[in-house]
Design a protein around this nucleic acid. Sequence first.
DNA 1: ACCTGAACACCGTTCAAGT
DNA 2: ACCTGAACACCGTTCAAGT
Lengths: 232, 232
Amino acid sequence: METTTQAGSPAQPRAPLSKERVLSAAVALADEGGVDALSMRKIAQALGVVPMALYKHVANKNELLDGMIDVLVGEIDPPAGNTDWKTAIRRRVLSARRMLLRHTWATEVIESRMKARATPTPAVMEYLDSMIGIFRAGGFSVDLVHHAMHVMGSRLLGFSQELFEDSSGREPDPDAMPPEEMAARFPHITELAMAVAHDPDSVVGSGCDDQFEFEFALDLTLDGLERLLRRN
Amino acid sequence: METTTQAGSPAQPRAPLSKERVLSAAVALADEGGVDALSMRKIAQALGVVPMALYKHVANKNELLDGMIDVLVGEIDPPAGNTDWKTAIRRRVLSARRMLLRHTWATEVIESRMKARATPTPAVMEYLDSMIGIFRAGGFSVDLVHHAMHVMGSRLLGFSQELFEDSSGREPDPDAMPPEEMAARFPHITELAMAVAHDPDSVVGSGCDDQFEFEFALDLTLDGLERLLRRN
DNA sequence: ACCTGAACACCGTTCAAGT
DNA sequence: ACCTGAACACCGTTCAAGT
């Protein structure tokens, strides 16, 4: 009802807009509506600013996305000291995973920007570098850590990569296949799905215990690497 | 110079437009210019047709993308008979990888559509089902094949997922870091990069032997699974 | 010198008007 | 009944006109 500035509450509609404010507004918007719905115009609107004002702090949308990735990488826990390489890597990767689960759009943006850029951003480089450092301190040769980084690739800044994620709240398929046809055409999937559904330990409704599956895969890889290391 | 139909060459500008023609035109355009540059309008133009004509064969752009994925899955070699599960899986995954390398935009589209859809398309389901079938025929329990599918996840319809791919032909970074600063800030990356650069066996210029790295990671996973299988 | 509105060249998709 | 042009509601970004 009152458009002029009130005495008691300065209304502060004009906090001085910085790159940080732009980036965190962008991250918040992406968290809410996904990265496809993210536009320069909407970020500006959320900040109470004209669209062109953003271009004073980021050169273009790609640079904005790079900045958003750096914000995310900053959320990954720093490496733990006083442990062996295996638990240090394990904790770090699981911390990265938690970040990825908080920001569902992260893998998409990271992957597409990594593909487009000649070099990852410094923040990503720093993260990768400290990962390599943990392996090296654990006694890995340069060659073996090279392979290890490639093996870990998809999990380092990885993907939860669930093939059959919880499907509630997604586009419902108007002409979905009837269960009988499913069972006839895809017997192995059906068998597997049935086993999962009847497993009392599995999470009700969602089917797969994503966390368990992720750790299972991670440990399989880490054990394999450890075996190679011992063989030196 | 001649706009009317010639006698010798019927000019056939009006092949009757089918869903298949639309999809293969879309795949060809994506192969050329990437999926970001793909638009309904450009597909129509390539087919010599008005944009709205496409909507007779695909309901919307998402359905178009789903159809394109099916075209790609159709390019993966069928499972080989007369072999053990390990070589059968290996061949199939490597065939999928070759498809992914032919269509650089594939992983991006597959990942984003898998995330959006409640169920993968039937063609993708068929592929996954026959994969599970190979494991089952190899003696895997339903439980173990369940885990195996999760482990293989990122490689099944996977990602080449190279962290440091050949950077030629990508956006050059105007303010790239000087090598000395690189070495100081990222010692481990530098060490690794140097070792790779001085390895006479590595591919000149591109740095990493992507194919070798992919197979290294794949075999590490497969060997781990085999060990679990033997332990039954 | 700084800021910004209008404009440009695009999108996917709707819809009513044409045949 | 079919087909399609124009239009709608968006984009990211340029640029010239305002202060």
